[in-house]
Amino acid sequence: LAALHAEGPLAGLPVTRSDARVLIFNEWEERKKSEPWLRLDMSDKAIFRRYPHLR
């Protein structure tokens, strides 16, 4: 499970980098069924690119 911001401008976004990794992994797991070539990237760089508020 990932903790998400409940309200405000960040509502629905992950609270920590660990939470972001959970979301990225879950999405990758779903997408790899139809796109088996996808690589999993959970590096800090990938997290910041996707969720800049975690910098």
Rank of each mutant, 00 (worst) to 15 (best):
N26K: 15
P14G: 01
L4T: 09
P52Y: 02
H53F: 02
P52L: 02
L1A: 15
P52D: 03
E35L: 12
D44P: 14
E30G: 10
L23V: 08
V22H: 10
L1C: 12
A46N: 12
E29S: 15
D44N: 14
E29M: 15
E27C: 08
Y51F: 15
R55I: 15
E30W: 07
D41R: 04
D41W: 06
G12R: 03
R55L: 14
P9F: 10
E29Q: 15
L4D: 06
M42K: 04
N26S: 11
A2H: 08
F25K: 08
D41Q: 05
L23N: 02
I47C: 00
T16L: 03
P36L: 06
R39L: 11
A20I: 01
A11M: 12
S18Q: 11
L54K: 00
P9C: 09
P9S: 10
W37G: 12
D19C: 05
W28K: 01
M42R: 06
L40R: 01
F25D: 01
P9A: 12
H5G: 03
P9K: 08
R31F: 07
S18L: 09
G12E: 03
R55V: 11
F25R: 09
M42I: 11
L54Y: 00
V15P: 03
L38E: 07
H5A: 05
D19Y: 04
L10F: 15
V15Y: 07
A20N: 00
K32V: 15
L40S: 02
F48H: 06
R31M: 08
I24A: 03
E29A: 10
I24F: 03
A2L: 10
A2W: 05
R39G: 05
L23F: 03
A46H: 10
A6E: 14
K33P: 08
G12Q: 03
H5Y: 14
A20H: 00
Y51S: 00
K33H: 13
A3R: 07
R17T: 15
R55M: 12
F25Q: 06
H5T: 06
V15R: 15
L13H: 05
V22M: 11
W28V: 02
E29L: 14
P14C: 00
R17P: 13
K32H: 14
H53W: 04
R50V: 13
K32E: 05
S34D: 15
P9Y: 11
D19A: 07
K45I: 11
A6P: 13
A11I: 10
R50F: 11
R50D: 03
W28C: 02
L4H: 05
E7G: 12
F25Y: 15
W28N: 01
S34M: 15
D19M: 07
A3D: 11
Y51P: 00
K45G: 11
H53K: 00
R49G: 13
H53E: 01
I47D: 00
S34Q: 14
I24L: 11
A20K: 00
T16K: 08
P14E: 01
K45A: 11
V22Q: 14
L38R: 10
R49L: 14
L1M: 13
D44A: 10
R39C: 13
R17N: 10
E7D: 14
R21L: 13
H5F: 12
S34W: 12
S18Y: 13
Y51Q: 00
P9I: 08
D44E: 11
D44R: 08
A2Q: 07
K45F: 15
R55Y: 10
R49I: 09
I47W: 00
P36H: 08
Y51D: 00
P9L: 12
Y51W: 15
E35H: 12
R39V: 15
L4W: 03
R50N: 04
L23S: 03
K45R: 15
T16M: 04
P36F: 06
F48R: 06
R55G: 09
R21A: 09
K32R: 12
D44L: 14
R31T: 07
K45H: 13
W37A: 08
S43E: 03
E7W: 11
H5P: 03
R21C: 10
A3M: 12
R50M: 06
D44H: 08
N26H: 14
F25P: 00
W37V: 07
N26R: 13
A46T: 09
E7C: 11
A46F: 06
L13D: 02
G8L: 04
W37Q: 11
E29I: 13
R21W: 06
K45T: 12
V22C: 09
K33I: 13
H5M: 07
F48D: 12
Y51M: 00
A6F: 12
A3Y: 14
S18H: 13
E35G: 04
A6C: 11
D44F: 08
W28Q: 02
S43M: 02
W28Y: 04
R49W: 11
R31E: 04
A11R: 14
T16C: 09
L4A: 06
L54F: 05
A2T: 05
R55P: 06
P36T: 06
S18C: 15
L54V: 01
A46S: 15
E27S: 06
E27Q: 06
E7A: 15
H53I: 01
A2R: 03
M42L: 13
G8W: 07
L1T: 12
I47Y: 01
P14W: 01
M42H: 04
R55N: 15
I47R: 00
R50Y: 08
D19I: 03
E29W: 15
V15E: 05
N26C: 02
L38W: 08
S18R: 15
A3P: 03
W28F: 12
M42Y: 06
S34Y: 13
V22R: 09
V22G: 04
F48S: 12
R31K: 13
A46D: 05
Y51H: 04
Y51E: 00
V22P: 01
H5L: 04
D41A: 03
R50C: 03
W28E: 01
P36S: 06
P9V: 10
D19P: 02
A6V: 14
L38M: 06
P14S: 01
K33F: 07
A20F: 07
E27H: 09
R21K: 14
P52S: 02
L23P: 00
S43I: 02
H53P: 00
T16R: 08
L1K: 14
L54Q: 00
E29D: 08
L23C: 07
D44C: 09
A20Q: 00
K32Q: 11
T16S: 14
I47S: 00
L23W: 03
L13V: 13
E27R: 04
D41K: 05
N26M: 13
L54A: 00
S34P: 02
G12L: 07
V22D: 03
S43T: 12
A3F: 13
I47P: 00
A2G: 08
E27A: 05
K45S: 13
V22T: 15
K33T: 11
L54E: 00
L10C: 06
M42C: 10
L23D: 02
R21Q: 11
L1F: 13
R17D: 08
E7I: 09
A6K: 15
L10H: 11
